[in-house]
């Protein structure tokens, strides 16, 4: 009977956490009607979560594009289809790797930092102190971070894809000798702006909501101790990575699977 009670307690805790997370999201979302006061805060956070993640995104995008060109070439060349390297690299990046890898890197780089920062603000009573100053911490602390993440991640994802395609060009065309003209032209005739590029961006927006939401919630909800913060930071990375990968399958099935 004990395990049944444990199961029940676990389910109740999960539902309660979902409720608290929804409250945080709601509090952050209703903060929109104050754009003038919030814009500088959002810009500041865009610097923290966006610009500071740029390097890791660009470097990863470049290398992933290069690796894909290398791997793709060795397979395609057996079928004499190395001209299809362009669309292979572009489609994998735009549909899958761009949004997904960006989300995973973002969770590790920016999401964990958000959780730790908010958790530390909670531990040092900065959040309580805001509340006592009659300033809603959801509005002042959570909302700008949430919006910055929401805006930045799709931007990072398109930069990732673009850099990856250039990286594929570097390896495929400059090193392995695929014709530059066919790299671009077959890519252009295969890739559709709405179906591939826009769908990838939509995915990225969904992941942005998930990762940023989990990150700010874990920080806001953590136990204000050193163990609590470190646990929350780990949970942010684990939960958002798993959610992104699971959700990616559903989104892919909806967008590309059934025709």
């Amino acid at each position: 009977m004990n395990w049944l009670a444990n199961l029940g307690a676990w389910v109740i805790e999960k539902i309660a956490a979902t409720g608290r997370a929804s409250q945080v999201l709601y509090g952050a979302l209703v903060a929109v009607p104050r754009p003038i006061k919030n814009t500088p805060l959002v810009i500041r956070q865009m610097y923290v979560v966006g610009v500071q993640s740029l390097l890791i995104i660009v470097v990863s995008g470049l290398f992933i594009g290069m690796v894909m060109a290398l791997q793709g070439y060795t397979i395609l060349v057996d079928y004499g289809a190395e001209d299809s390297l362009g669309p292979m690299v572009a489609l994998s990046l735009l549909r899958e790797l761009g949004p997904v890898v960006t989300a995973l890197l973002f969770a590790g780089r920016a999401g964990s930092a958000l959780t730790a920062e908010i958790g530390l603000m909670k531990a040092t009573e900065q959040l309580s102190s805001l509340e006592m100053m009659a300033i809603d911490p959801l509005r002042r602390v959570i909302a700008p971070r949430f919006w910055a993440g929401f805006i930045c991640m799709p931007m990072l994802a398109v930069i990732f894809s673009a850099v990856g395609i250039l990286g594929g060009h570097l390896v495929g065309v400059d090193w392995l000798g695929v014709d530059s003209g066919s790299y671009w032209s077959i890519m252009q005739s295969t890739v559709d702006f709405r179906a591939d590029v826009l769908n990838g961006v939509i995915k990225s927006f969904v992941f942005a909501v998930i990762v940023t939401w989990i990150a700010v919630f874990k920080g806001y909800d953590c136990l204000p101790t050193s163990e609590g913060i470190s646990k929350a930071t780990t949970e942010t990375v684990v939960h958002s990575s798993l959610t992104v990968l699971g959700l990616d399958f559903i989104l892919t099935a909806l967008m590309f699977g059934i025709e």
């Binding site: 040092t124 009573e125 309580s128 102190s129 509340e131 006592m132 100053m133």
Partner: peptide, 15 residues
């Protein structure tokens, strides 16, 4: 709350 304020143990200054 604008009429009250609280001095926290840690100071709780915005870092």
């Amino acid at each position: 709350r604008r009429d009250m304020s609280m001095l926290f143990q840690s100071g709780a200054l915005f870092t």
